Simulated assay, not measured.
Amino acid sequence: MCNDYEQHIRWAEYCDMMQKLELGIPAHQSELDLPRADDVRINDMAPVMHATGDNIALSQMNFSFPPTGRGGPVFNFRSEGRQFANSKRCLIPASAFFEFTGKKYPKAKHRFTLNDATFLAIAGIWREGQGNHPAAFTMLTTMPGRDVEPYHNRQVVVLRPENWAAWIYLTKPEAELLRPLPGGSLIAETVRAGID
């Protein structure tokens, strides 16, 4: 399951997209709020888009909820059968996400990008920090679409830009948003061959 993504979004591209979608950008935000990262992994701090009044703000949060009990950190959260109206919804901006195949390390690494956009957003939920833990986010998952199915039996929920506000403000049914994109929406590229 996706535990690694890439964030190579230029500030100008982000601003252009936000203006096109009429989502607004807080005046105090700048390119410093959208740092470049080749690999964002579990427990890394990364920018997350969330509602703040009339705008969508970028805030640095921890990638994964802290463990509860004996389990590990929660970095992927199954969306099926759940309702998120009372959750803090967010978008994780990414230029690509990765899936891994194989049984031996290093596993083959596959990079997925959105076919018709310079960057994508993954549906997520976030929580305020507790104690000495910072605010944190997790990615929502669903059954795989045609593009991801050859690589994994689950996938993160990738939202097209026209559905970003619908997820943040929940103005469309969750079942309509939290599903895989149609086949051909994602481009897969193997960026590292694995060991057989």
Rank of each mutant, 00 (worst) to 15 (best):
C2A: 15
N3G: 15
Y5W: 15
E6F: 14
Q7A: 14
R10F: 11
W11I: 05
W11S: 07
W11H: 11
A12D: 12
Y14L: 07
Y14P: 01
Y14T: 02
C15I: 12
M18S: 07
M18T: 03
L21T: 00
L21R: 06
E22P: 02
L23V: 10
L23F: 12
G24R: 09
G24M: 11
G24Q: 12
I25S: 08
P26E: 01
A27D: 15
H28C: 14
H28L: 15
Q29K: 15
Q29W: 14
Q29M: 15
S30F: 06
D33K: 08
L34F: 09
R36P: 10
D39F: 08
D39K: 03
D39W: 08
D44C: 12
M49C: 03
H50F: 08
G53D: 01
D54E: 11
I56F: 08
S59T: 00
S59W: 01
S59P: 00
M61Q: 04
F63H: 07
P73M: 12
F77D: 07
Q83I: 06
F84G: 04
A85R: 13
N86S: 15
K88E: 05
K88C: 06
L91E: 00
I92H: 02
P93H: 04
A94Q: 01
A94F: 05
F98G: 03
E99V: 09
E99S: 10
F100D: 04
F100R: 10
T101E: 05
T101F: 10
K104H: 11
K104E: 06
Y105G: 03
K107T: 04
A108H: 03
A108S: 07
A108Y: 00
K109D: 08
T113E: 11
N115A: 14
D116M: 02
T118K: 15
I122K: 03
G124C: 05
W126C: 03
R127C: 04
R127Y: 06
E128H: 10
E128I: 10
G131N: 12
G131I: 05
N132Q: 13
P134R: 13
A135G: 11
A136H: 06
F137M: 14
F137P: 04
T138S: 13
M139D: 09
M139R: 09
L140D: 07
T141C: 12
P144V: 08
P144Q: 10
G145R: 06
V148C: 11
E149I: 09
H152F: 07
V156A: 07
V157M: 05
V158D: 00
R160G: 00
P161E: 04
P161Q: 03
N163L: 06
W164T: 00
W164F: 11
A165R: 14
A165N: 13
A166P: 06
I168D: 01
Y169I: 00
Y169P: 00
T171W: 11
P173R: 10
P173V: 10
E174W: 09
A175C: 11
A175P: 00
L178H: 01
R179P: 00
R179G: 06
R179N: 02
R179Q: 13
P180E: 08
L181P: 00
G183Q: 12
S185T: 06
S185N: 07
S185C: 09
L186K: 02
I187P: 08
A188M: 07
A188R: 07
V191R: 05
I195V: 15
